[in-house]
C-alpha cells in the first residue's frame, strides 16, 4: 500500500512538474476555456447553456488523449519500464496510476471551470450534480482507457500523435463539444456515437443539465464504462516492458477491439 501511495504521489506531482503534462492537464484546457468564455457567448449566446460540460469535456479530451500516451511511450523507450520490472513494480500500477492521477487533475480543472464559469460568464450550472459527477467519472475512465491503449501500442511518440488525433479532432467537431450534436445531420449524428465524447456530452446534457437526450443517456454511460474496461484490459494485455522484447502477446491492431462498444452503440442507441 505504501508503494502504491508513493507511486501515486510521485505521478500526481509529475502532472504539474512536467511541462508537457502541465500544459495538457491545466494550461491548454483552461486557456481555451477562458478564450472561448470571453468570445463564444458574444457570437452564440446559447453556448452558455452547455458551456460547463463542453469545457469540462474539452479538458478531459486534452488531458487524456493528448497528455497521457506520450509519457508511456517515452518511459518504455528510455528503459524506465525495464528498471520498474527489475524492481518489482507491477504493470497494473504503471498503467493505473497515471490514469488515476490524470483523473484527479481533471477533477481539479473541472471544479475550476464549473465554479469560475458561473461567476465569470454566468454559465448555466448543472441541475443534477450527482449526474454531473457520474458522467464525468464514466467519460474520464473511458478516455483514460483509450489513452493508455494508445500509449501501449504506439511504437513512437510520433505514432501517439497520429492515433490521438484520430480521436481528438473528430471528437472536437462531432462530439458535441464545440457545437451541439443536434445540429448535425442525423446520419452524422449516429456515426458520431463511435466517439466517447458524443456519449458523454449527450449524458451530460440529459443527466446533469436537464436538457433533452438525443440517444439513451444511460445506454451511453454503459457504453463508456464497458469501453473503458475493454480499453484498460487490452492495454494490460498488450503492455510491453521494453521495445526489444520479442515476446509481444498480441498484435497492436487488437487495440481496435476497444472500439467495439462504440461501434455497437451506433446500431443499438443511434
Amino acid at each position: 500500500m505504501t508503494a502504491f501511495v508513493n507511486h501515486f504521489l510521485f505521478e500526481f506531482r509529475t502532472g504539474i512538474r512536467d511541462k508537457q503534462l502541465l500544459l495538457m492537464n491545466y494550461l491548454f484546457p483552461l486557456g481555451v476555456y477562458l478564450l472561448l468564455g470571453f468570445i463564444f457567448p458574444q457570437i452564440n449566446p446559447p453556448f452558455l447553456e452547455t458551456m460547463i460540460p463542453a469545457m469540462v469535456m474539452f479538458a478531459l479530451i486534452a488531458a487524456t488523449l493528448l497528455g497521457m500516451p506520450d509519457p508511456l511511450v517515452s518511459a518504455r523507450e528510455s528503459g524506465i519500464f525495464r528498471s520498474y520490472k527489475i524492481n518489482g513494480i507491477p504493470a497494473a500500477s504503471i498503467l493505473a496510476i497515471p490514469a488515476l492521477t490524470t483523473m484527479l487533475h481533471l477533477a481539479v480543472v473541472a471544479t475550476i471551470i464549473t465554479v469560475s464559469a458561473a461567476l465569470l460568464f454566468d454559465a448555466r450550472l448543472p441541475v443534477n450534480w450527482g449526474g454531473f459527477v457520474l458522467v464525468f467519472l464514466a467519460s474520464s475512465f473511458a478516455l483514460a482507457g483509450l489513452s493508455l491503449l494508445i500509449g501501449v501500442i504506439s511504437s513512437s511518440t510520433r505514432m501517439t500523435v497520429l492515433w490521438s488525433q484520430l480521436i481528438f479532432l473528430p471528437s472536437m467537431l462531432l462530439g458535441g463539444v464545440m457545437m451541439p450534436t443536434s445540429i448535425l445531420p442525423q446520419s452524422v449524428g449516429r456515426i458520431s456515437l463511435i466517439l466517447p465524447p458524443a456519449h458523454a456530452m449527450n449524458a451530460f446534457n440529459a443527466l446533469a443539465m436537464g436538457g433533452e437526450a438525443l440517444s439513451n443517456p444511460w445506454g451511453g454511460i454503459v457504453v463508456l464504462l464497458f469501453g473503458g474496461i475493454l480499453a484498460v484490459g487490452l492495454a494490460v494485455y498488450l503492455f510491453n516492458w521494453d521495445r526489444h522484447n520479442a515476446t509481444q502477446r498480441g498484435h497492436p491492431l487488437l487495440a481496435l477491439l476497444a472500439l467495439t462498444p462504440y461501434v455497437a452503440s451506433i446500431f443499438l442507441l443511434g
Binding site: N6, H7, F10, T14, D18, G79, I80, S83, N87, G88
Partner: peptide, 18 residues
Amino acid sequence: GLPESITVDEAMRFFSAY
C-alpha cells in the same frame, strides 16, 4: 531507468517502498 522529473528523495522512497 528513472523518470526525468523524479527527485533523488522520491526515487529512494519510491523504489524502497516497492
